[in-house]
Nucleic acid binder design. Structure first.
Lengths: 332, 332
DNA sequence: AAAAATAATGAAATCGGTTTCCGTTATGCA
DNA sequence: TGCATAACGGAAACCGATTTCATTATTTTT
């Protein structure tokens, strides 16, 4: 390993001067700096991030916590898109990303301990934030941001769920749909916002709405089951699913019941990821802006770390309604 | 931060003894060890991984490189499953995972430099291994493993592509299909193996096969385009796609041409992830064992790091052929 | 020309661990 | 009882950076 001492010897300057030169500190002669940089290139010097972190108290390393329904799982297709953009932004600013885990012992404070151990500068939380382990992390001294979080422990970034749901439902009502079945996701802030939007769209036009069916899936099979159970009971002309998995499962179930989308029933969903794009017909959706969300999360977290920004705010990233032929206008 | 010195003071033993006790070294009285462990719990001691790595020359940290078509991208649905299992295994053995990136300057040796900087103990390579940057990494002194790699620089883990393709095609031939169109993936070892299996299945029964169509996609739109172009020209009774994205795109294109799957044309694919499961009908596939592959990668890499295993081998993980109604028997 | 201010550099302490080496005490054996 | 050996514990060096503070050289001020 090539160290700063080797570089000191090679360039003829002391380690302290070398360090200052490499870090662009003032108080180093430009000519000296040049010589040192040249020598560094010559002998192939790479700084040791661990040594740096030890002394500097900052590791330039961020943690990412994927925590879904009490298990660590990276395969969530929407969150991984968010992470992808988060990574792009933070790595451009010189940060690395480490995947959080519970560690070997996995007792209380598992995540907090993990962060302290690696001296992580901050953490991105994706997923369930209700678990104790995650709450401990939010309360700790480690800067955190989360997606879809609306509590007052840390900042959260989310789509404008109320507004876009209201708009989507209004549009459907305008197309003649009055029996719109809304399968909601699990109970949380996002779901509540969407339900509020759904209810308000009907309230605006003084119409009666169907009861929402609470179902916490992200699971095509379960969604199929619910569809088979509730369609015959409620006879909706349109169905809204809370995510792509549920929607594709639901569409298949409808087909299985001999129904055509959109001739017999219109379908819309949230997310609008690759799943809803490859099904035919492509599904109408409230497409969340994964890139925008990832970017907003990254920028907020970096501000917290680098600028001491401690404002616990909700940052809203506009989603987009994407209408396709999966929803059709009903004739009067 | 609670350090080993605080723990030394609290327990009444010197830092060196404390270190030995914590690391389960011999030469420490069990009673002493107990006292130290108790004190550690009491004051909430968390070891500093950076300090440890600095001295111990081993960071207990692994790098993961997602490198697809010259860009760093985490959203590959199959690789992310592999990584998920890789992570589960390695974190159980006390390792953390850091996502590799090119760093700010991004010149030659970018990945190698990144590894040295963080003192990574080893690297998992997912994706393109043809790029110079990845080759540099393979040649370096850092232990690496890769998926679907069959060169002689590092070990590789892969499915039994030849065997399973041969079996799939044989089965289709047995069902009466003779005009089987095989859209292959990009040019690499995996594709060559599959083509060999395809060809051998026809050779076994002395039948003429259609020419394979090379297409490097993982892209539903592109696959649709190819399907629209080649179906009318070759009139196959069955089509095999190289991945789920291509398959769903292809199926939609076929439907667009007024063809039914499987009544007019049978369809099979590789991977068999969530995409091929939610389409209707669910697609026949050679389902790669993502968990098995992730596990094999993890175990091999850990053996290389911990046991000095330097055997450059190809590890084969059996895939599974999953037949569904997307392929039908042709009547004589 | 002397004094003061400024710029450039280096010596040394420090971060929080690990590890080598050595001294002390306990134990086994004759 | 005396001696060799083993077990235990601690002092100190070290890993590779950063940072404070002192020192020297240079420039500016009076």
């Amino acid at each position: 390993m090539v160290t700063i001492y080797d570089l000191s010897e090679e360039s003829g300057f002391s380690p302290s001067t070398v360090s200052k030169a490499l870090n662009n500190y003032s108080g180093v002669n430009p000519a000296t700096r040049e010589k040192i940089l040249l020598a560094a290139k010559k002998i192939g010097y790479t700084p040791n991030a661990n040594a740096r972190a030890l002394k500097a108290k900052c590791s330039k390393n961020l943690g990412v916590l994927f925590y879904l329904r009490n298990s660590l799982d990276l395969t969530h297709y929407f969150f991984i898109q968010v992470l992808n953009e988060f990574k792009r932004v933070t790595e451009g600013r010189g940060y690395d990303i480490t995947l959080l885990s519970k560690g070997a012992d996995a007792g209380a404070q598992a995540f907090v301990k993990h962060c302290h151990m690696r001296q992580l500068d901050g953490v991105l939380i994706l997923g369930d934030y209700t678990s104790d382990l995650v709450q401990e992390l939010m309360i700790s001294d480690i800067p955190c941001v989360a997606i879809d979080y609306a509590g007052d422990l840390i900042p959260g970034v989310m789509s404008d769920n109320y507004e876009k749901t209201r708009a989507l439902v209004s549009e459907l009502i305008g197309m003649g749909h009055e029996r719109i079945l809304f399968f909601t996701g699990e109970f949380n802030f996002v779901t509540e916002e969407r339900k509020r939007g759904y209810a308000d769209a009907f309230r605006e036009v003084n119409k009666e709405r169907l009861p929402c069916v609470e179902a916490r899936y992200y699971d095509a099979d379960l969604s199929a089951e619910y569809t088979e159970k509730y369609y015959p009971a409620l006879h909706p002309t349109a169905i809204i699913y809370p995510d792509d998995f549920s929607a594709t499962g639901g569409v298949n179930a409808l087909r299985g019941m001999g129904l055509s989308v959109p001739d017999d029933v219109s379908v819309a969903t949230f997310d609008g990821g690759v799943l809803s794009r490859v099904t035919s017909p492509e599904l109408t959706c409230v497409r969340q802006n994964a890139e925008g969300i990832g970017q907003a999360l990254a920028e907020k977290l970096l501000r917290m770390i680098e600028c001491g920004d401690d404002k616990i705010e909700r940052i809203v990233v506009e989603a987009q309604i994407h209408f396709t032929e999966s929803c059709r206008r009903l004739k009067k």
